[in-house]
Simulated scan of single mutants.
Amino acid sequence: MKTFTPKPDDLTHEWYVVDATDVVLGRLATQVALLLRGKNKPTYAPHADSGNHVIVINAAKVALTGNKLDKVLYSHSGRPGGLRRDKYADLLERKPERIITAAVRGMLPKNRLAKVQLNRLHVFAGEEHPHTPQKPQVFEIAQVSQQAK
Rank of each mutant, 00 (worst) to 15 (best):
L64G: 04
H53R: 08
P42W: 10
L113Y: 08
R84H: 15
P80Y: 11
T30K: 06
E93T: 07
I99N: 00
D70C: 12
H53W: 11
G51W: 08
S77F: 07
M107A: 03
A29M: 14
A60C: 05
E14R: 06
L64A: 06
V72F: 01
I55Y: 01
V144D: 08
P130H: 10
L11R: 05
T132V: 07
V54E: 00
V17F: 01
P8Q: 12
R105E: 14
P8K: 14
W15S: 05
V116Q: 08
R84P: 11
I100C: 02
H76G: 06
G82A: 05
V116F: 13
M107C: 03
V18A: 00
L113M: 13
G66E: 11
L83M: 15
N111P: 09
L69R: 15
P130T: 13
D19Q: 10
L69E: 08
D86A: 06
S145E: 07
L35P: 02
G66S: 13
T30F: 03
E128S: 11
V17G: 00
L108W: 04
P109C: 05
H76A: 10
V18Q: 01
N119Q: 15
L64N: 09
D19S: 14
D86F: 01
N40S: 14
A20F: 04
L69C: 15
E127Y: 09
Q134I: 02
T21G: 01
M107P: 04
G51M: 12
R85P: 00
H76S: 09
A48Q: 10
A45N: 13
R120S: 15
K115L: 10
K115G: 06
H122Q: 04
A59K: 04
E127F: 03
A63V: 08
P96G: 03
L28I: 04
V17K: 01
T65W: 08
A45K: 07
F124N: 00
K61E: 05
A142V: 12
L83V: 09
Q147W: 06
D19V: 13
R112M: 15
P42R: 12
I99Q: 02
E128C: 15
L73M: 10
Q137E: 09
E14P: 00
A29T: 15
I99R: 01
L92N: 07
T3P: 03
T3D: 13
V62I: 03
K115V: 04
P133L: 12
T30D: 06
H76I: 09
D49Y: 07
V116E: 13
A63N: 13
P46S: 03
G81Y: 12
R27W: 02
L121G: 02
V17T: 04
Y16E: 02
F139S: 00
F4Y: 14
L91C: 02
L28W: 01
P130S: 11
Y44T: 03
R27T: 02
K87C: 13
D86L: 05
F4W: 12
G51Y: 11
A33T: 10
T3G: 06
A33E: 08
L91K: 05
H76M: 11
I100H: 00
P8R: 15
W15E: 07
P133I: 07
K71A: 14
G66K: 09
